[in-house]
Design a protein around this nucleic acid. Sequence first.
DNA 1: ATAAAATATCGATATATTTCGATATATGGA
DNA 2: TCCATATATCGAAATATATCGATATTTTAT
Lengths: 103, 103
Amino acid sequence: MDYDKIEKIVAALNNPVRRNILFWLKDRSNFPPALPEHSDLEGVCVGYIQEKAGLSQSTISSYMNLLKQAGLVISERHGQWTFFRRDEKSIQAFLGAIGKELS
Amino acid sequence: MDYDKIEKIVAALNNPVRRNILFWLKDRSNFPPALPEHSDLEGVCVGYIQEKAGLSQSTISSYMNLLKQAGLVISERHGQWTFFRRDEKSIQAFLGAIGKELS
DNA sequence: ATAAAATATCGATATATTTCGATATATGGA
DNA sequence: TCCATATATCGAAATATATCGATATTTTAT
């Protein structure tokens, strides 16, 4: 994982709301149950994330995009809904890389 | 390690110069040899850090203070000189904590 | 005491980030 | 087609950060 990639991730984590969102996404039960037609989908609808975060819809939208650009989350659109889940592989790669850089 | 402590460290790391400084401080040979009267001291004189970073003296001073407040470095004053070294224990604690938070 | 060297602090400016409300776009239903 | 819902994008204002030069402070030497 190169220098710029780490930089992007550190920047993404350097905000309490975004950091919280990643934490919440670890456990689906931090959010309301999915709608019936979404029950077999992975991830959490951005609307629920926005509610839980308590910020404006536009802010959360830009934050989720930033997390996505940093590679920390994966997004999938299903009809009118966008779902986000953590990119566990990328997160682990980051932890490995930052561990190596700082040790 | 609590939430605010991690926040401070992530913020400290969220700058290329500060991140580089921590990296350079891993290896004393990234800097010129110490003066004879400092040869038995630990750490690197802030003047050398400033030279290597290529920014103004005042910027580096504030940056080193920020790294110190985040607990990433330890400073020691010897006469007119201030020396900085990494706080390895704190760094490892951070890596453990961020690994736990993100995993 | 004066002067020099090293470094911390201050104040200012430019730029980046946070956050919002407004609006645009995408999807779906009647 | 029109209307509704969900979400992305835009532009703006407030705040935070990066960085500088000037100045203050600390330490040392003469």
